[in-house]
Design a protein around this nucleic acid. Sequence first.
DNA 1: TCATATTGAATGAATGTTCAACAAATGGTG
DNA 2: CACCATTTGTTGAACATTCATTCAATATGA
Lengths: 227, 227
Amino acid sequence: MLGTVTLMKTIEGREAVAEPARKNDSEKRGRKASKEVRQLQLIEATIDSLAKRGYAETTMADVADGAGLSRGIVNFHFESKEKLLVATLQHMYDEYSAHWRNALQKAGDDPARQLQALVAADFDRSICNKRKLAAWCAFWGEAKSRPTYQALSSSRDAYYQQVFIDLCAALKESGSYAYEPQVMALALSAMLEGLWLRMMMGTEDTTRETALQAANAFLVAAFPEHY
Amino acid sequence: MLGTVTLMKTIEGREAVAEPARKNDSEKRGRKASKEVRQLQLIEATIDSLAKRGYAETTMADVADGAGLSRGIVNFHFESKEKLLVATLQHMYDEYSAHWRNALQKAGDDPARQLQALVAADFDRSICNKRKLAAWCAFWGEAKSRPTYQALSSSRDAYYQQVFIDLCAALKESGSYAYEPQVMALALSAMLEGLWLRMMMGTEDTTRETALQAANAFLVAAFPEHY
DNA sequence: TCATATTGAATGAATGTTCAACAAATGGTG
DNA sequence: CACCATTTGTTGAACATTCATTCAATATGA
């Protein structure tokens, strides 16, 4: 509920900001840059640190160093470490949401195509890479004990789940399947998250390619009349 | 490789220790207990802390308090915090391994039954509860940045995966399925992990019952001739 | 009596936050 | 345009806190 409202606000805000990038596009690091650019820069450095060192070892100093800025700067732009991390999580959440919504929109009207587009979107390079996956997992590890993270840390929110359920229901309509849409949607979305987890941890035995292959095999198995 | 070797050693060791529990079975907390009992006690307190506070906020003091012992005690039994956490992870890993091996053994010779037994074992109360799941997830978040954790933090190791592949292959033999066993096994085990993740994070919308339901739906979809 | 376990205070290192000083942009005024 | 005032951004050192670790003293069991 609250998650999706915030989502809309921030997606538009962030996207709008990211494009112009002001006049100082490439090199104005040591001196001054717009507030939004600097915040983005610090958020990216935070993701780097989370991926490299994990949540527990991510320090304000490391983030500042990673961004090539001084120690006190993070507290200036984000009041506290806590708020920096929330902003980082929000950023990743917004990016993920925008990504799958975009993929869904481009997929046309056929539910079968739409579902496959959603699955494929999950393994897109821009979303699904070591750096981002590691950062997600770092937050997952802390989510249950931090109420602030809980709403955002799933990336796949209630609305996303509902879209899956609706698509499964549509396929059931146009085919002769026996399963409850809700149940199959849960199995499918859980598998996608599980594949993410594997890609992060696995020692290269689960790659983007094999993961996508497994996901598609699931679709074929679950909806043989459509794929 | 190394993981499975260590596994064998520790499973037998730990199991052997856990059973006798010495003469002082219930109440000898404040005074003295056998070394092994005390270590178990501290490991349990560590799991509690991980579940309640998350990895980043788990402190030696909190573990000691949770066990009702003094501050310095943890460094006496486990040289350092790092080693305490490794021992805790090892303990959970051993417990999980023993659990699914036991379930597999009890399932008889039919591959279809065996596979279902493995799936069901994942959602057993003794393994699948808020406390343990939260502790697992706490380690997952740190695993990629800590080489020491990587081998143990998956719980489902290479051997477990191979068993899944073999079972899928066996079902394919006795049916007319088109999928590669490896691919289907990956999809299945990833879904199990994803369901765990959901149960941890979800606000009660994914329960043990609905998760098991989804997992069984997957089995029915993937192997309609067997379930 | 000896070895082992336990305590709790002391220590030192790591780290988030604050802040006074400094630098850069901005905007108004002559 | 030049000048200054004000706001805004940035720095790095100082500070306070938290926490893992150490250890001398004490208690317990053999």
